[in-house]
């Protein structure tokens, strides 16, 4: 367990010493803030036309949920970029050999990397969640729904992270890993389009959007939570398997 923290600590340090992390963090905050203010402005324009007494419930619908959808899209783009170096770079520079010849299991390596990535992603989610939360100063928010939204984003980030980490474990080219991860995440995002019309289908269940929408509506269903957790565990497991298998293939 300590090895996991040691590895995560080093990765975070490396991440924050490169301009990339700061740039991405700034970009994410900027986009979220922009979108958030845009939705707030839209809401302000709509309020006068709402039936009296209704505007307190409307703010979560009209501002929080749409903002969170955008945060999810930001994560689609950022996660591959933040994750691309995790294992690909270690392989390219030969430092993977350092970890492999240390008394550390492949599981600890994968979990350490994942923990570092997840801390970064959750920081982005926390910043994004703080913006709608500031509306609490002037209006009443549906905090339960906000909580469900944050949970959705946190789970989504974990799943994206695990997928990107696995893809980073397949190659020694960080940029290639980023593009491939982006493609994979995008595919899982839009896969439900293949099954247009059907409400519950295999494709529909596979897609991120189905489960994200449910959670953003405030419906915390075990099935949706399980979907994200299964996806995360599956890809973490695949990463461990990949690191172990590599020793056999050479």
């Amino acid at each position: 367990m300590r090895a996991v923290l040691v590895i995560a600590g080093r990765d975070l340090r490396a991440l924050f010493r490169s301009p990339l992390a700061w740039l991405l963090l700034a970009g994410a905050s900027f986009v979220t803030a922009w979108v958030f203010l845009w939705f707030v402005q839209g809401f302000m324009a709509t309020v006068p036309h709402l039936p009296p007494g209704e505007h307190n419930t409307g703010v979560t619908d009209l501002v929080v949920s749409p903002t969170f959808i955008w945060v999810a899209l930001v994560l689609v783009v950022l996660t591959p970029l933040l994750a691309m170096r995790l294992l690909a770079e270690e392989r390219r520079s030969g430092t993977l050999r350092l970890l492999r010849s240390a008394p550390v299991s492949a599981t600890a390596i994968v979990l350490g990397k994942f923990l570092a990535l997840l801390s970064m992603l959750w920081l982005i989610v926390a910043i994004a969640a703080a913006m709608p939360l500031s509306l609490e100063l002037g209006t009443t928010l549906d905090l339960g729904r906000l909580g469900a939204g944050v949970l959705a984003l946190a789970l989504l980030a974990a799943a994206f992270g695990a997928i990107s980490l696995f893809i980073s474990s397949l190659t020694r080219q960080p940029l290639l890993a980023a593009f491939a991860s982006f493609g994979a995440i995008l595919l899982l995002w839009i896969i439900n389009l293949a099954a247009s019309g059907a409400t519950i289908s295999g494709f529909g269940w596979l897609a991120f959007q189905t489960h994200l929408d449910a959670l953003l509506r405030g419906l915390v269903d075990t099935q949706d939570v399980a979907y994200f957790l299964i996806l995360t565990l599956l890809f973490l497991g695949l990463s461990v398997w990949r690191l172990d298998a590599e020793r056999l293939e050479g």
């Binding site: 300590r2 340090r13 490396a14 520079s93 030969g94 430092t95 050999r97 350092l98 240390a102 008394p103």
Partner: peptide
């Protein structure tokens, strides 16, 4: 183990790197 190419992390200083290696062990 010293591999053919020294497995260094360029973003760490020499002491930080050695501390990291010791902590891995």
């Amino acid at each position: 183990y010293l591999p053919e190419i020294p497995p260094l992390y360029p973003e760490l200083t020499v002491t930080e790197y050695l501390r990291f290696c010791a902590r891995l062990h």
